[in-house]
Amino acid sequence: MFARSIRIPLARATLRTAPVARFSALSVRFGGHHEAKVSQGPGAAAGTIPTDLDQSTGLERAELLGKMQGKDIFDLAPLEVHVRGTKANPTVINSRDPIRYVGCTGVPGETHEVNWLLIDQTHEFDRCDQCGNVYKWTAYEADENFPGDKGHHH
């Protein structure tokens, strides 16, 4: 357990390959996000109070546009596993990154302590060593009509 708890932060650290080491007061203004197409509303008419739809930008706007389509662009809800994943029929893990962390609590859920697994793109499959459930990394498919996928933010 101890080895694992060390390994995960290490793996996390190595994952962060983006150049975040810049140390400049100007990075906030000119750094990072500016190569991206910024989704932007028309802004407020002079003399009025803008609404979020008029004026929000960036991730905030993507969230708003998603909500207007009745969707949550953020993938925060826990994955409910109703059918045990097997090698033939694994539990599919959508991911935007080459690996994704999954905290398995067993199938059915809450039957063992949280077991943190690294679901890796390069693995044929990943198996929870507590309950034996099989997970398979799958690329997240971007949808150009979905606000969460439009702006190439990072």
Partner: peptide, 18 residues
């Protein structure tokens, strides 16, 4: 692979001197 926007709503702040 295709990179889209971050899939979480949190603001991970950049290094700052302040």
């Amino acid at each position: 692979m295709q990179k889209t926007i971050q899939s979480h709503p949190f603001h991970l702040v950049e290094p700052s001197p302040w």
